[in-house]
Each structure stands twice: as C-alpha cells, then as structure tokens.
Design a protein around this nucleic acid. Structure first.
Lengths: 248, 248
DNA sequence: GACGATCCTTGATGCAGATCAACCTTTGCC
DNA sequence: GGCAAAGGTTGATCTGCATCAAGGATCGTC
C-alpha cells in the first residue's frame, strides 16, 4: 500500500529528465520558480488508475517516467485506447472540469502534477507555456490522425507491425538516436492492452505476433523482450514504406 | 475554368459568418485590421483539391463556407479520411512547411487564407490568436479520439449511425440549436467519401444506409436528403447511449 | 508444493464486412 | 436521342478476424 516512494523522485526542475521536452520546456528560470510553487510529484504503481473519465480533474501534469494509457469505453464494455502517454507527455486539458478519458498507469510511473486552477491562471499570463502546449497538442493531433489510418485501413498484421515500429522508434529516440543495427526493447503493454490500442482481440494480437516471429520479422525472448533485426523490414510489414510518418 | 466568384465572398470581417468561431474569434478590432492585411479569400469548386500532402504550404486559413475533407493515403491506394473541415475550421499548421494531408473541397467552398509566414509572426505576438488556436486544436484532438473509438470498435451499422448523428448535430448547431422534433439535412458526402471516413467500403455504406432506412431510423428522399424522426433512436444505433460525446 | 491468478498461446468454428459483379439512375455532352 | 461517366444499389461469394474453448507458463501466497 505504500505507493509513495516507488521510485527516486526528482526534486528540482534542473534535474528533471523531461525538462526540455515537457510543457515547461520553454520556460525561463523565473517561470520555473513559479511553476515550482504549484507542482508536486505523484507516483503510481503498474496497473493503478490515475483518473477515471468523468472524475473532477484537480490537477494536470506531465509524465516524468513510466507509461500510462488513455482509454475510452462504451457502455457495453467495448474499449478503445486513444493515446499512449510517455515521459514528457501532458495529462489533462486546461479549462476542462472533468476527465474525458480513463488514465491508467501500465508501468510504475511518476507524474509532475500542477494544481489545475493555478496552472490555468499561470498559462494565461505565461505565453511560453501556452506556446509549448499548442505545439504538443498539434503533435498529438498528428499522432491521433496517423492512428486513425491504422485503425481504419490496416490489417491485423500491419497493425501489430505499426505498433512495434512506434515503440521501437520511440525507444531509439529516448536511448540514442541510431536507427541502424538491431533494435531491442521490452513491450510496455500486455497483449490485451495492445489489442485495445489496435482495435483487435487479444487472441489476434497473440497470433500475429507469433506469425511475425515465425517470419523472422522480430525475435522474441520470453513474452515481452523484442529484437528487431531489420527495421526497414518491419516498416514494410506495417505498410509504411520508405520514410513512413508515425511520430514518437 | 472560372473558379473565382463561385459564391458571394465577404469583404469585411464584420460581415463574416464565422467571425465568432474561427481562429480570429478572440481578436480585437485592431488585431482584425492587422489580419486583414495578410488575408485573402479563395473559392474552390466541389471536387477541387485545396492542397496535396507534401506540397509546400504557402497559406493557412479558415473554412468560411462549404466543406472539405482531410485525407491520408497509403502507397498502395488505401485511404482514410482523418478530418471533416466545416465552416470556421482551421486548415494548416503554423510552423510546418509542407502539408501533412490531402485537403479536398467536397462542396463549393470559400476559404479565408492568411499568408503563412506573416501569420506565424503575428501569432507569436498576438496571444489571442494562439489561445484560440490551442482551444480549437484541443477540440479537434477530442474529435479525433472520439473517431478512434468509432474506427476501432464500432460495427458498420454503428459507424453509419455515428456519422449521421454527427452531421445532424452539427447541422442543428448551425441552423438553430433545437434537438427536438425531426432533423432534416443533406448528406455533404458521397457514399465513397463516407466509406473513407468510416473505414468501410462504399458497398457496405450503401447497404447499411438501406438497412437503417428499412428499420425506420432514417427517412431518405433521393440519395442525399435525410430526415431523422427520432434523434435518440439514432444515438442508440450509434452505440452512444444517453448523452453521447461526439462533438461538432 | 499445491492453489489461484494473471498472462499468453493455439485450435476450431462462425460471421461481418470485403470483394467481385451486375445493373439502375441521373447528368452532361455530342 | 444516343451514350458515356459518375454515383448508387443489390446480390453472391469469400475471408480475415472475432468468438468460443482448452490449456501452458510464471508468479505470489498460504
């Protein structure tokens, strides 16, 4: 039950691993000081909900480490993941009272939270924050639209390959930006969560992963540890020839 | 070949039908004057492309009247519509050199265009514009995520009902906001364009529309003119019970 | 070390929607 | 008036993925 102190928590913005990518990326020292007054860190264990759709949002904030999912549900229980929240991604919408989606931590996760009201008033007078948030929102919109193509037009095999290539790419960008040689990473999602993201069933996800493994597109050790020997091959399987466009 | 003067074009922002909803909604008189210097109107005929993905964006702007679509294509020809652009919607992304999607007018359309570079510099010094653009982008992001649920988890019948309910709702909000009594409107899209939006084939769209007609959910006169006798019934068919959330 | 829980895999079967195909209606053009 | 093109409907058939079902692997707990 001790869900505080799950992980070492940064104290100072200077130490913060997402300092240069988060909503505060453009802020000057004095602006960071102001933010510091309304911020606090919160830890979540893998599987723990951050907030449910319809709940009152008391805070907004940034993912510092770990991964969370944004999910939408229908009354009859069908669900669709609508976003994957990675370090530096922003949670919550300024100006909105209640959460629109379920947010769940899928790994242990740390968030840098800002009390919502003060954050909103600060945003109104600090163009650096609003500017950065606009930029991030435009990126998210692009990602959502890219995902609409995946959901609407790709086959199950292509969907899996698309998801793997996103995770691989984003991992490369976090570690070191070399996209040559084999890429190695751990899947941060269960088969069920992948199915939720891809608009498939977990059985289909499992089968297609097995198929990609059999065809040598990926190498699996255990259920989660993936090696991609040839990234271009994976991209072809995803239907994104040549450059492709899915963004991290 | 005369694609100018397709429609009466507003001259003054004061007359503009989208004045209070577009990216300029929050602007003061002096800011409008500045915008006026970099703006020009452009008309497009139904079916005409506005811009192709990859083209250099010389302008951004607002849809004044008519409807356009935002479409993404795969190399092998599969396409997915990723947005429907209605009056007041914004086209283009400040800071981006080239278009990310194909934009095509599906009805005769008028746009209020701003030369991109001057618009970007103006945005940097005019918080009213950036604020409004952030708001609009957040709304679009919500709409895109709502659509991800439609694409990923709904049946063909539910997809058609979802599309009809969006069009119906948005029409109601443009004319007069009464959602009681029968709603009547014309479909602004061909069966093929609907299929593109919904991730279906045009045959399936046609069949499901016929089915909804047979079941009395909608009444059709000709191929495009739709009457919805009971909007709540339509919402149920869309899988969005009670309030639902799809936004205009 | 037996158990239940969670996560995953694989097989058998069924069905929603894709595909292939024919034909209708409307519109514009010679 | 003939005819080609665009948009739409409907039927027959095929297939990719869902569904139903069984069982394996790993883990924590008593």
């Amino acid at each position: 039950m001790l869900n505080e102190t799950v992980k070492a928590i940064p104290r100072e913005c200077g130490d913060c691993p997402i300092r240069h990518r988060a909503v505060c990326a453009r802020c000057e020292a004095d602006e960071l000081e102001q933010l510091d007054k309304i911020k606090y860190y919160r830890s979540f264990q893998a599987g723990q909900p951050v907030i449910w759709a319809g709940d009152k949002m008391e805070f907004v904030g940034s993912v510092v480490s770990g991964i969370a999912t944004l999910t939408q549900a229908m009354e009859d229980g069908r669900t669709q993941m609508v976003g994957l929240l990675l370090p530096s991604d922003f949670v919550g919408r300024p100006g909105r009272e209640t959460a629109a989606y379920d947010v769940v931590a899928t790994t242990d996760m740390v968030m840098c939270c800002f009390r919502r009201k003060p954050f909103e008033t600060m945003m109104a007078v600090t163009p650096h924050i609003a500017q950065r948030l606009l930029e991030m929102t435009l990126d998210e919109l692009d990602a959502a639209r890219e995902w609409m193509l995946v959901l609407g037009r790709k086959t199950a095999r292509e969907k899996i390959a698309s998801l793997l290539s996103i995770i691989a790419r984003r991992n490369a960008s976090l570690t070191f930006g070399k996209i040559t040689g084999p890429m190695v990473f751990d899947l941060p999602l269960t088969r069920e969560a992948m199915a939720d993201y891809l608009g498939l069933t977990l059985e289909t996800v499992s089968r297609q992963i097995s198929a990609l493994r059999k065809d040598g597109v990926i190498v699996l050790e255990g259920k989660r540890h993936v090696t991609v020997p040839d990234f271009n091959r994976l991209m072809e399987e995803a239907g994104d020839d040549s450059d492709g466009g899915l963004l991290a």
